[in-house]
Simulated assay, not measured.
Amino acid sequence: MRQHLRLALPLLSDLTSDTNIAFVLVGRDGRAARSGQLPLAELGAEAGALAVCAILHPDDAVVADITVPPVSNRRLGTAVAGSIEPMALSDVSQLCVAHSARAADGNVTVAWSARLPLVKAWALLAEAGLNIAAFIPQSLALPADDPAPAEPLGLPAGPRWLAPLPSWSLAQDELRPLSAKGQWRKPIYWSAAAVVVWAAGLNWYAAQLANEVESLQQGMQSTVVQAFPHIPVVIDPVRQAQRQLDAQRLAHGAAAEDDFMPLVLATAKVLDFAQSHVRGLHYDKGVLTLTLAEGYVPPGSEAVLAQAAAIHQLQLQKDEDRPHVWHVQRPALAQTKTRRP
């Protein structure tokens, strides 16, 4: 048995925040650990997070034993409601009905109480900070041999307070007040924590990408500065290199002994969609490798792109394993590699 608090409720119609309510704290050993009487408004501080079993006044609930034919568990509630309808003084829809499981002989213990007073009482108890786990009719909370089952529970605490309670009660989830639905708090807290962790991870990943982009841009700027040391400030490495090479070509007819800069400039003209998206540039043995950042718009037709490359004496090839990576070389170099055994 888990530790819990038992309350002896007055008539539900008389319950207010100032009503004095007798209580007994039942320990794990089933004995009374503490008892007393407090106004409802103060009981929340006394109970804390303990589960609270509220025992209804004898006049607030009816308990009966009925016989129900064999039905599925899904239809048992409907069968019980139909069985008690002749016994109830109110329409069944205005009642809160709960019942035990069906025994082998068809016997079912059923209890009912007026729905509206129970809902209002639950709201008052929840407002006081009480974690209501069960509403138990008094006759089901007393020892089987209790000599006065119609007499309300009272202090001092005795054996009448300590009988085993049924596993079912009139505390149905659809009647639970919004302020008492603590089962949503943990999911909300965990969802908020997950959002915080996700945002932190996203910021960290963005910072890593920013660092990588900055490193690549610095590498490209360093390459341009080495090739053209007279450039005071490098802002757009590819465009500035193209302008410098065009100027040197006009003046001298060539920019360097190898094909690096002519290859870069020709590639820039063919892959115009890659402007401002170059993350990496690598040149080795006549092959220029470009790594592009996401966000560029690829050409609509690869055939048109191949024709444009051929006009500038280039051969383009997308990397088969790495997305956004392009290899550019001269057709003559590609043919040489193909013929090599």
Rank of each mutant, 00 (worst) to 15 (best):
R279W: 06
E320W: 09
L288W: 00
K318R: 13
D321P: 00
A306W: 02
T267N: 04
G300L: 13
L271V: 02
L290M: 11
Q313P: 00
A274M: 02
A309Q: 02
F273I: 03
G286F: 08
Q313S: 12
A303H: 14
A268Q: 11
E294W: 06
D284W: 12
G295L: 02
L305S: 08
D284E: 15
Q275N: 08
G286T: 10
P323H: 01
T289R: 08
L314N: 05
V278N: 02
E294G: 13
A268V: 02
H312R: 10
Y283T: 03
L288Q: 00
V270I: 03
L281H: 06
R322T: 15
T291E: 14
V264W: 09
Q313F: 04
A303K: 13
Y283F: 11
E302D: 15
P299W: 01
F273Y: 07
L314Y: 01
D321F: 12
P299K: 04
K285P: 00
A274F: 01
I311P: 03
P323Q: 12
E302G: 15
D284P: 05
P298H: 03
Q317F: 06
A309R: 04
Q317C: 06
V264Y: 03
I311Q: 14
L290P: 06
K269P: 03
G295M: 00
H277V: 04
F273H: 13
L263A: 06
P299Q: 03
V297N: 11
K285Y: 08
H282I: 13
D319K: 11
E320N: 12
E294L: 10
Q315T: 08
I311D: 12
Q315Y: 07
L290Q: 05
L305F: 08
S276T: 13
V270S: 01
H312K: 11
H282S: 14
V297K: 03
E320C: 05
T267C: 09
Y296E: 10
G300E: 15
A309W: 00
G280D: 15
L292I: 09
L314Q: 02
Y283D: 05
L263P: 07
S276L: 10
A309F: 05
H277F: 10
T267D: 08
Q275L: 02
V270C: 03
Q317T: 15
H282V: 14
S301C: 11
L265R: 15
R322W: 12
E302A: 13
S301A: 14
H277S: 04
D321A: 14
A274W: 01
V270P: 02
H282K: 11
A303P: 09
T291M: 08
A310N: 11
A274D: 01
A268Y: 01
T267W: 01
L314I: 03
L288N: 01
T267L: 04
Q315N: 09
A310Y: 04
A293Y: 08
Y296N: 02
A303Q: 14
A308R: 14
K318T: 12
